[in-house]
Write a protein that binds this DNA or RNA. Structure first.
Lengths: 344, 344
DNA sequence: AAAATTTTTTCAAACGTTTGCATTCGATAT
DNA sequence: ATATCGAATGCAAACGTTTGAAAAAATTTT
């Protein structure tokens, strides 16, 4: 059986009765190589499908041109937008992105980070998993820091750690959303909150809370119900909201998915959107413009976050020794559509 | 400035005035190492944060434990489901997935494949880009074949190439969808088609066409309009359909996104779904159950595809020399919801 | 034709790890 | 006291490539 071991420089050298160095130089168009030798070797290499073993080069140069992207999930529009942004900047520079999905699992996250370091990844973009965040774990990050591998946080904050960070201004996005509802005449605004503990959830919740405070509206516990970001998780909570003695006249969902789930329940009850209940989401996912009614939402610039995060990485890389830690916070944008339109 | 070069086995050896071999054996719990030596070395290694350089091991063992996943996009639910499936099987086996997004671009696909080979990736899962497919390119695959790197096609067929393949039975899925519409009483069924040339588009179109044929219904050119899988791309085509002299009483969308876009246009015209127009999509994306009205669709088992593809890869890997090429086609499932419910 | 110069090629080391085989060092048996 | 044995450690090669310095070969100059 033909073992089909990849052709190496040594193989080519044997074939031409020359040294590996000559072959290497010929393949790399080194000037100190005879024109004929070069041509012959290059031609032969192409013929036999020689492909340089990057693994050996990585070992030699201590450069792998690989970056890790560690995220809790890739199911949602936002994450893929971030990855696209990273890709846009980093792919042309020759970097390969190694995308690792932790499923919100601490152990998996830890394993991935360790693996990325072992593989001599040159930088890591990390959105910590919920489990990690909840438990306040951070030891697995120590080794990344210790190794001085550039570490960029995307999206989720991690207070105790000083690294660069690119996040969206969830707080003001939420604030603007609720303020919009208030100024348009809604008075009793509920919030379908994200999982406790996550920065994204908490920031948006804070925006909701502080906006109500600003307008001297009491915060009612029964109007704040948790979800897990998924459509399904909005169903029961929304029903509970509608069954209240004084049901909300508007709902602010922690993301578009949840808002869409809520809309469904409301329409099923024969209520009108935005007539009876106003709805607002978060993310500005592509579908949000085409639901019925279309969904007012807060645009979250995922692609830009990816591009900014890339920039932060490159800064660290070219930075002089000690990293300059930057903290980029991108603004959101309120996108007003049908689900919140009501003449005040 | 502290250069913070990663600690190597040699560093540790120097510290203990012993040879690298001893350190290596100590770290790997080799039996022929003195208990004290072992303990001391292991402790010290932990202290200084030693992490074994997998790059050097990869070179030595010619094993990288890395697999490439080359897909045109990761924006949609289906692709992420496939990746999740791959992940489910392969992550526990120690494989790292290197996800590469080609954006339907041939050159990028070619570059990625070449890079993956150079990096000595042990297997490649490929869903060819539209450009590649359109142009019928295949040379970039030759080197993969030549190297005998296991290559598994996911989702998109590539006739001339014999490799293993895991796809969904789009044809029969589409057929069932249209048949459902017909048996429920719809007569004038339009199709919002996917981009020309893509297997997915063409197979679903064929299913549509053949089903109509089976029921002796003439195929009308004006009822078949192209889209690009995205919500927005359904808007204008749907308007055109509704403006026809004899507008369709049902629309079969090539995917859920397109179907949702169509629904939006129809509802905007004051028409009832499913009363005036029945709608059916494809994919069974999470959102499809919660649109208003909920969307009848064809379930596409992305996760299963990923798992099957993994199985095919493992078979090739353990297979004896010459690969056994398998061709897995998974069935779809019709999910009947509101958008097609009409008493016949 | 020898010396000087230029062109072309080879040598050897390095990257970090593992591993078969050889070596060293005590200790035990003769 | 010496041979024998076992345990512990070291040596050296290997993986594939690059690269500065040295060597060899070819060319030009004297």
């Amino acid at each position: 059986m033909n073992s089909s071991r990849p052709v190496t420089i040594k193989d080519i050298a044997r074939r031409f009765r020359c040294s590996p160095s000559t072959v290497s130089r010929a393949l790399n168009d080194h000037p100190a190589i005879n024109e004929d030798t070069r041509k012959n070797i290059q031609e032969y290499a192409r013929e036999v499908g020689y492909q340089r073993n990057e693994v050996s080069l990585s070992l030699l140069n201590k450069k792998t041109a690989t970056l890790g992207v560690v995220v809790p999930t890739i199911g949602n529009y936002y994450e893929t937008a971030v990855i696209e942004g990273l890709h846009t900047i980093l792919q042309p520079l020759g970097y390969t992105l190694n995308i690792c999905v932790t499923n919100e699992n601490y152990l998996l996250e830890k394993e991935y980070l360790s693996k990325l370091l072992s593989n001599r990844t040159e930088g890591i973009f990390l959105s910590v998993s919920q489990e990690t965040y909840d438990a306040g774990y951070y030891e697995h990050l120590e080794s990344v820091i210790q190794r001085k591998t550039p570490l960029i946080f995307i999206d989720r904050e991690y207070e105790d750690f000083e690294t660069s960070r690119a996040t969206v201004d969830d707080y003001h996005g939420a604030f603007a959303a609720v303020e919009h509802l208030l100024t348009i005449g809604y008075k009793n605004i509920a919030h379908l909150k994200g999982p406790n503990g996550l920065t994204v959830s908490e920031q948006r919740f804070k925006g909701y809370r502080d906006c109500l405070k600003k307008y001297d509206i009491p915060i009612k516990e029964e109007l704040i119900i948790n979800t897990n970001f998924k459509v399904e998780s909005a169903i029961v909570p929304t029903k509970r909201l509608l069954d209240l003695d004084s049901p909300p006249d508007a709902i602010f969902g922690v993301n578009d998915q949840v808002a869409i789930g809520a809309m469904r329940v409301i329409l099923d009850r024969g209520l009108k959107i935005p007539g009876d209940v106003g709805i607002i989401g978060f993310d500005n996912s592509p579908i949000s413009a085409y639901t019925y009614p279309s969904l007012t939402t807060v645009h979250r610039p995922g692609r830009k976050i990816g591009m900014e995060a890339s920039r932060l990485f490159l800064n660290q890389l070219n930075g002089s020794g000690d990293f300059v830690h930057e903290n980029i916070v991108l603004p959101t944008e309120l996108i007003i559509r049908e689900s919140s339109l009501r003449i005040s």
